[in-house]
Structures are given as structure tokens and as C-alpha cells.
């Protein structure tokens, strides 16, 4: 079949692809032009082209900055803990939802679980501070009226870490179930029936059919998460963090915001961004490689 004929037959598919590809070119590849800022002494008024090349001076300055290492450590730490706490949550939820047989209850639970995902972090931050404040938070008011001491959920770094992680679970676990639920529907129903006939209990069925059935999805998501270890969203640490816990809550994204947008040192901010991109790529490839070796599952 010649190209012309092939194209005539399938042109609709290519037409559909135009929009996403344009999106990537404009929003993902186009801005890479700006990466050169990392190697220039960026001057607001001369623009990218007019600023002078400074080689690796920007990198030297960033790597000599004590805050860079602190925020790098925090980024990895928060992401790693998040992986441990937040990664299994949607999986467990999805399996629980999958086991539910009452359709209306299942639908209702799913909807309720999804909702937090659609609330902006700024609002969640407001709610968290109203609930967990030491002096005027609802939880502590309750604790104190029961005769306990107030717990510094937000102002002591280790308690803060717990607050941060659990807020994350609350916000994202429900939404995270979607992919698993989709994968679960792909498991052959006959396997479950056969297992039931052979006398396998619910737990056995989950362990030996459900989980192996969605293993590729789990591995894929794990790889993606590992690839993102070095990058961290801005809103969550920014709105949940505060001055008393900066030691933990200051991460690369808030660091970039502070030196870039707030202090106008775009060179340094771009250096950090480029660093994150390169390390993120390495992480992703490494995770993919290891996964390929161990489980034969990979995404590349």
C-alpha cells in the first residue's frame, strides 16, 4: 500500500493528532529556547538574545548555595515519603471499590473520593489551617476540651510532615483509583469465577488474580512516579508550608519561585529547572531499566 493511499484512508487520524502535537511544540518544546538563560547573565531589558553568555557561572552559583541542597533534600524526602504513603493508597482503594457489588454505593463512594482532587490547593491550605491550627484549629480545640495537650500539627516539623503527607493522600487517592479501576475491568471475569469454584477466599482472589492482573499498571505508575522524584508541585508545599517548618517545606519549586519570580534572578532559577529536568530524565531511565530487568515490565 503506497503512502498516498495509506494517508488518504487514515488522514482523519492525523488530523486528530495535529492539536496535541501543536500543544507539545508550543508549550513543551518552544520554551526550551529559554533554557539558554541558564548559561547567560539574563538582563530583563536586553532579553534572552541580548544577554551575555556566562558559561557555567550560574551553575557554580547554584551549586554553592546552601539552600539549593536543603531544598533538593526536601524535594527528594517529600517525594519519597509521598511515594511510600500515597502510592499504595489509590491501589488499596481501587481494590476495595472493585470488590463492592452494590452499584449505587460504589458510584457514590467514587464520586465522593474524586471530589478533593478538584479542590485547589489554596483552598485545601485554608481548610488545613482552620482544622489543624494549634491555638484555634478545630481538631486542637476538640483535643483540649477533652483534656489533652494541643498538638502542633503545623508548626513542629515532624508533625507537619504527617499533616503534609495525609493531606496529599486525602487529595489525590480517590483520583488515583481511576487508572487502577480501568485496569481492573480488563481482568477476565472467568478467572474470578474459576477461583471461587476452586474455593479461593476473597483475600486469595485479590492476591493471586487482582494484583497480578494490574501489575503492569502498577509498575508503569511506579516508574512515572520515580521519574518525577526530582520535580515537585509548587502549590502543595507552598500553601501547607510555613515559616516554622521551612526546614522541611522549602523545596526546589518554592526555591525557584523565590529566586526567580520574586528576586528576579532568572539565570539561577533556570539553572535549577534544567538541573531538575536532567536528573528527572536520569531517574526515569534508571527506574525503567531496573523494572525491565526485574519484572520485564517497562514503558520504553
Amino acid at each position: 500500500m503506497g503512502y498516498a493511499r495509506y494517508f488518504r484512508r487514515n488522514w482523519q487520524m492525523y488530523a486528530l493528532l495535529v492539536l496535541p502535537i501543536t500543544f507539545f511544540i508550543i508549550f513543551k518544546y518552544g520554551p526550551m529556547y529559554g533554557v539558554q538563560i541558564a548559561f547567560k547573565d539574563f538582563n530583563f531589558f536586553r532579553g534572552i538574545g541580548g544577554s551575555e553568555w556566562i558559561g557555567l557561572d550560574g551553575f557554580r552559583e547554584v551549586f554553592a548555595n546552601h539552600d539549593f541542597y536543603l531544598t533538593l533534600r526536601n524535594t527528594l524526602m517529600l517525594n519519597f515519603l509521598d511515594l511510600i504513603v500515597s502510592f499504595p493508597a489509590p491501589l488499596i482503594l481501587a481494590i476495595m471499590l472493585f470488590e463492592l457489588k452494590v452499584v449505587w454505593f460504589k458510584k457514590l463512594s467514587q464520586t465522593i473520593l474524586y471530589i478533593p482532587h478538584f479542590i485547589s490547593w489554596v483552598i485545601i491550605g485554608g481548610i488545613v489551617y482552620q482544622l489543624f491550627g494549634t491555638q484555634s484549629g478545630m481538631i486542637n480545640n476538640l483535643l483540649m476540651s477533652l483534656g489533652f495537650d494541643a498538638v502542633p500539627f503545623l508548626s513542629e516539623k515532624n508533625y507537619w510532615l504527617i499533616t503534609y503527607l495525609l493531606t496529599g493522600v486525602w487529595q489525590s487517592a480517590g483520583w488515583g483509583t481511576i487508572l487502577y479501576l480501568a485496569a481492573l475491568t480488563g481482568i477476565n471475569k472467568e478467572l474470578f469465577e474459576a477461583a471461587e469454584v476452586d474455593g479461593a477466599g476473597r483475600l486469595k482472589r485479590i492476591l493471586h488474580i487482582t494484583i497480578p492482573g494490574i501489575k503492569p499498571t502498577i509498575v508503569t505508575l511506579l516508574i512515572i512516579n520515580l521519574g518525577n522524584m526530582i520535580s515537585i508541585g509548587f502549590e502543595r508545599p507552598f500553601v501547607i508550608g510555613n515559616l516554622a517548618v521551612r526546614e522541611y517545606s522549602d523545596v526546589l519549586s518554592t526555591f525557584v519561585y523565590r529566586i526567580g519570580l520574586e528576586s528576579g534572578q532568572y539565570t539561577l532559577a533556570t539553572v535549577v529547572g534544567l538541573f531538575q529536568a536532567v536528573v528527572g530524565l536520569i531517574f526515569l531511565l534508571a527506574a525503567n531499566y531496573i523494572s525491565k530487568k526485574l519484572t520485564d515490565e517497562s514503558i520504553l
Binding site: 513543551k28 526550551m32 519549586s253 535549577v272 529547572g273 529536568a277
Partner: peptide, 8 residues
């Protein structure tokens, strides 16, 4: 992953 650099 690469696009992280876009932030700034």
C-alpha cells in the same frame, strides 16, 4: 520531565 525546566 524535560518540561520541568519551563517553570521559569
Amino acid at each position: 520531565g524535560l518540561s520541568a525546566v519551563l517553570a521559569s
